[in-house]
């Protein structure tokens, strides 16, 4: 009974307001016209954003092939520091000297620099100095913890600038006569793993947006693409 009365009440009001209309004030159209001249900020061009990401990744992947490593090294400023200063310069580079552990071992006149990014994400930097003073080999064991230094973070987190940073760092830290050649392939290998690592952080799927593998001589190859509807996978890389 109550329900019937309620429905009748609702219906009466609905009928009364069915054709209800009222002229708004003229200012409303003026405001609408102003609002229509402004761009709609809420609608981001998602398709273009996605395309931009793909282009950025592609350019990172293709860069080493287009530009010889010698040129990258030649562009970077080469600084030779005396042995005593080298260690302190290293520490300043890392901006967070508190977590840098330095073990002194005497290795005369050798220059070695290794930058290794292995599966456990441990970045190991072995720095030694070349000069007249009895040089010390310093091992900088950098754990990828919260306090990981800025340089190491850059290598892990951002695919674009890391090329620059890594190339520059290698040139700065290395004696140019020695290990430029031996360093380059490792750099490339690191980049391949780096790209896969970054994507594994961003993309939870089993088949990532882009999968990369590196050949010993030829550099990086894209071995898999997963664009949702479109999946490409190089079977030879699935070993």
């Amino acid at each position: 009974m109550q329900e019937k009365l309620d429905k009748a009440f609702d219906r009466s009001l609905r009928d009364k307001f069915r054709e209800f209309s009222e002229e708004p004030s003229p200012a409303v159209w003026e405001q609408i016209a102003v609002g229509l001249d402004r761009p709609d900020r809420k609608r981001l061009p998602y398709a273009w954003l996605a395309a931009a990401c793909v282009v950025i990744f592609a350019s990172v992947l293709l860069w080493p092939k287009q530009e010889p490593e010698e040129m990258i090294l030649a562009k970077a400023p080469i600084i030779n520091l005396p042995a005593a200063e080298t260690a302190s310069a290293k520490q300043e580079n890392f901006k967070n000297p508190a977590i840098v552990q330095i073990d002194k071992k005497v290795v005369p006149n050798s220059v070695r620099y290794e930058d290794r990014l292995d599966s456990s994400n441990e970045l190991m930097v072995v720095v030694s100095s070349s000069a007249d003073v009895p040089a010390a080999q310093k091992e900088l064991n950098l754990q990828p913890a919260a306090s990981t230094p800025v340089v190491a973070e850059a290598v892990v987190a951002s695919p674009m600038p890391d090329m620059d940073i890594a190339a520059n760092t290698s040139a700065v830290m290395n004696d140019p006569e020695d290990s430029a050649d031996s360093f380059a392939p490792k750099q490339k290998k690191g980049l391949g793993k780096l790209v896969n690592f970054v994507l594994s952080q961003v993309d939870p799927r089993a088949d990532k947006l882009i999968e990369v593998s590196e050949d010993a001589g030829e550099g990086l190859h894209i071995t898999g693409l997963n664009l949702g509807l479109i999946k490409l996978k190089n079977k030879t890389s699935n070993k």
Binding site: F17, F20, S21, E22, E23, P24, V28, W29
Partner: peptide, 9 residues
């Protein structure tokens, strides 16, 4: 506008 104004009111 008039009809929509009726709804908004």
């Amino acid at each position: 506008a008039p009809k929509m104004m009726g709804i908004c009111l």
